[in-house]
Amino acid sequence: MKLAFTLNGALVRVDADPDQRAVDLLRELNALDVKEGCGTGECGACSILVDGVHKLSCLLLAAQLHGRELTTAAGLGSVKNPHPIQKAFAEHGAVQCGFCTPGMTIAASALLAANPDPTRDEVRQGLSGNLCRCTGYVKIVDAVRAAARKGDGGEA
């Protein structure tokens, strides 16, 4: 099945099996920031934005991506020009092993787009679909609150 979608601002045309999972296709396309953790929608490591909405790429079929605009963590910012959320994660030590970080930053950007100044509790709820097995939640919440205070609206 011929698919066309935008991945982090670049148009991608690819021939994929329609029932291939989005997470597998994205990783084949070298979007290795999209991680697979549980594969059942419970950990959030494979989080991406689809037309700006936080979704799980392990529960999407490749065919569902056609015509959509996708953003992965690498599309939020780069090492040279990090997104304020990514910068705050680095500054607050919100990264331990790093496996959950791409999904966490995607969830945080969706949260801040909807709620630019969340309370700690709202941050915890906003990130409640994302697990950190290093259990570094306190610093992750600190980082999201700090990014929010800098007035970033979470624009992807």
Partner: peptide
């Protein structure tokens, strides 16, 4: 129900 991304899907 679920989590934010589950509720989005």
């Amino acid at each position: 129900l679920g989590s934010p991304p589950i509720r989005n899907m």
